[in-house]
């Protein structure tokens, strides 16, 4: 069994092995500490020249990464908590994402910024958020989200070694300890994987009747959605399919559209706040693509900061029960 954490660690190790242009950079990334979430553990011991610890200067280190990338290196910057991505936004939007385009394609910025988003750990308002919605759709910035359905380390390797554009690579704190799910272990599901560099996964209950609802979710939310799909089938006899993208921005929705074309019912699930979020854009695009007759609903975090107390946090973040409830309601819409 490989956890997502081990997979990511292995992915970084592979990058360092395969290219001497790779530099892993971040706060507290050196051994023996090995990073706040231990994704970089062991790397500085084996690649001391290529793993660089930094001051607590998120904007500065992402800017340094932009400069390194512009000059031909493959920097991988760790931002310790996804919440701190706000400190780097100028570097991401005005520098990393712009230079290639505004130079009329004269330069490339092969930068990767990795960060753990997400709550459910009791870390409170500034260490639990899923802030990616603020960066989705920023022209020139790719956003990729790791999932338990595939090899997160390989996804990261592609971003580092094969993508010549800047990538914001999203991890989820709760996913770290989860095992990567081998598809043959998903005995309840049939799984299709698109052949995109950053694939989309399509799951449906094995041997079930035609789905009547399409769910879509990424990252850890996809795990909740997968649980909901199972319980909807076994407890409610509502059959659904689940589309899990890893390529969030630019929006890569063709697999979703083909599923929704059949079901005409779309439920989006995300851990970010609901208003003006990922689900809103996905539904708008589905509506434009498929026209009238689409029924849609969103499950997302409440539009408020994430509280620290466990009971309160659970109330604000989407749970499996919320997804089931929304799906049942949506199945009855006409």
């Amino acid at each position: 069994m490989t956890t997502i954490l081990e997979s990511l660690n292995r992915g970084l190790r592979t990058c360092l092995e395969e290219s001497d242009r790779v530099y892993v950079i971040g706060e507290d990334v050196l051994d023996p500490y090995g990073g706040a979430f231990k994704v970089t553990r062991g790397l500085s011991t084996d690649y001391p020249e290529h793993v660089i610890t930094t001051p607590v200067s998120e904007a500065g280190i992402v800017g340094v990464g932009v400069g390194m990338a512009l000059r031909g290196l493959f920097p991988v910057i760790e931002i310790m908590f996804g919440d701190f991505i706000s400190l780097t936004v100028d570097q991401l939007i005005n520098h990393a994402a712009k230079f290639r385009w505004m130079s009329n394609d004269q330069v490339r910025v092969p930068l990767v910024v990795r960060t753990p988003m997400g709550g459910r750990r009791g870390y409170g308002p500034t260490h639990s958020q899923s802030l990616e919605k603020h960066l989705l759709g920023a022209p020139g910035l790719r956003v990729v989200a790791a999932t338990a359905l595939g090899d997160a380390g390989e996804l990261l390797r592609k971003a580092v070694l094969e993508d010549e554009d800047p990538v914001l690579f999203l991890e989820h704190k709760v996913l770290y300890a989860k095992p990567i799910i081998a598809h043959d272990e998903l005995s309840d599901f049939e799984v299709d994987v698109s052949d995109d560099p950053y694939p989309t996964y399509r799951l449906r209950i094995a041997g079930a009747p035609t789905p009547v609802i399409t769910l879509t979710a990424y990252g850890y939310s996809a795990e909740l959605a997968r649980e909901a799909v199972k319980r909807l089938a076994y407890e409610h006899e509502i059959f659904s399919d689940l589309i899990v993208p890893t390529h969030l921005s630019p929006f890569e929705l063709s697999d979703l559209f083909s599923a929704v074309r059949q079901t005409k019912r779309l439920l989006t699930v995300e851990e970010g706040t609901m208003t003006l979020g990922w689900g809103a854009e996905v539904i708008a695009r589905a509506l434009e693509e498929l026209g009238a007759g689409l029924h849609a609903q969103r499950v997302a975090a409440g539009d408020m900061p994430i509280p620290a107390a466990g009971l309160l946090e659970t109330a604000v973040l989407p749970q499996v029960e919320d997804i089931i409830e929304a799906a049942v309601a949506l199945s009855e819409a006409n």
Partner: peptide
């Protein structure tokens, strides 16, 4: 680039590359 200060860490990253 037109962002004041934003180019300074980038310049440092270029220097680190050298």
């Amino acid at each position: 680039n037109g962002i004041l200060g934003g180019t300074v860490p980038m310049a440092a990253g270029m220097a680190s590359t050298e």
